[in-house]
């Protein structure tokens, strides 16, 4: 029987209250949202917090809001909500692509976007989604609010810029006309982490050329987005040879590890093939928004 080590439990009633509790209980306290990463780690005693601060009552962080040129998503928004949101699927189809293959439907009822990003697993799909969409993270702490780019947010595996006494409250996504996106993942079975995955976001200019592009990889050893691929795509009309070249660059730039999910050469092949597929799909989708 896997049971966590003893801890004390307290439920936060608001963001301010959560911040107070984090200050009061200090470095041995951890915030719990959906709990589907933290509780398994606590069962294995890889995590032994003395205090758990439950933020599941912070409904103020469960929202999807269109605010001018920005889409704002609260950190406590559950995966299921993100998956089922037609508004998000219309603007950022990459979110539905990714959410439909994150964990399984039952885990998605509990897991949150904020929890996924803060867990910062190298195989976390939403990290790639946020990277390619150019999201910003809104973090609150005792000193007030700060807003970080994803490049500043990510620190490495299982590590982010969110301080011990801080809380990730919101993700902000810029809305761009004539844009679309896509995500594709290869997994061994439902609920497993990715063997590899790729995400892409594309913006077209009025003349149909690619004005901006972002390509990211999941679980394949690439931090952030692939600048070389964006350089190849920008200013050109979407075409198969561009996708092939971007795929080649992705395979060369990534640094996958050999593990039980596959050898390095197979994972590089995935980086290549999945990059081509998501670029193809994102460009097709972006062209449709232009027609509409």
């Amino acid at each position: 029987m896997q049971i966590p080590a003893p801890f004390d439990y307290v439920r936060a009633s608001s963001v301010d209250n959560a911040l107070e509790l984090l200050q009061r209980h200090g470095t041995e306290s951890r915030v719990i949202a959906g709990g589907h990463s933290l509780l398994p780690m606590m069962k294995l005693r890889l995590a032994r917090p003395e205090w758990l601060i439950d933020i599941n009552d912070l409904y103020e962080l469960d929202f999807i809001l269109r605010d001018g040129d920005t889409l704002r998503i609260g950190a406590m928004t559950r995966h299921t909500t993100l998956l089922e949101s037609d508004e998000i699927a219309g603007i950022f189809p990459i979110v539905r692509d990714a959410e439909s293959v994150i964990a399984d439907p039952i885990v998605r009822n509990r897991g949150t976007i904020g929890g996924s990003l803060c867990q910062a697993d190298p195989a976390e799909d939403l990290s790639t989604v946020c990277d390619v969409l150019g999201a910003e993270a809104v973090i609150r702490g005792p000193a007030g609010e700060r807003i970080l780019t994803m490049a500043d947010f990510h620190r490495g595996p299982y590590e982010t810029a969110v301080g011990q006494d801080e809380l990730l409250c919101e993700l902000r996504f810029p809305l761009r006309p004539r844009s679309s996106s896509a995500y594709e993942k290869v997994e061994r079975r439902v609920g497993d982490w990715a063997v590899g995955a790729a995400g892409a976001a594309i913006t077209l200019a009025a003349d149909g050329t690619i004005s901006d592009a972002a390509v990211g990889l999941t679980a394949l050893g690439l931090d952030g987005t692939l600048a070389e691929a964006a350089d190849v795509l920008r200013g050109r009309h979407p075409a198969e040879e561009l996708f092939v070249e971007a795929g080649r660059l992705a395979a060369a730039a990534c640094d996958p590890v050999d593990d039980q999910r596959g050898p390095v050469d197979y994972k590089r092949h995935l980086a290549d093939e999945l990059t081509r597929r998501v670029l193809r799909l994102a460009c097709t989708r972006a062209a449709k928004t232009q027609e509409g």
Binding site: M1, Q2, G35, L39, D104, I106, V107, N109, R110
Partner: peptide, 26 residues
């Protein structure tokens, strides 16, 4: 015990959850 098998599923406010990965306190 690892939220993989789903035999422990119960409904929480009408939604299926894996009860091995929810604290009773939650």
């Amino acid at each position: 015990d690892t939220s993989n098998c789903g035999t422990c599923v119960v409904l929480m406010d009408g939604q299926p959850v894996k009860s091995c990965t929810v604290l009773a306190a939650m």
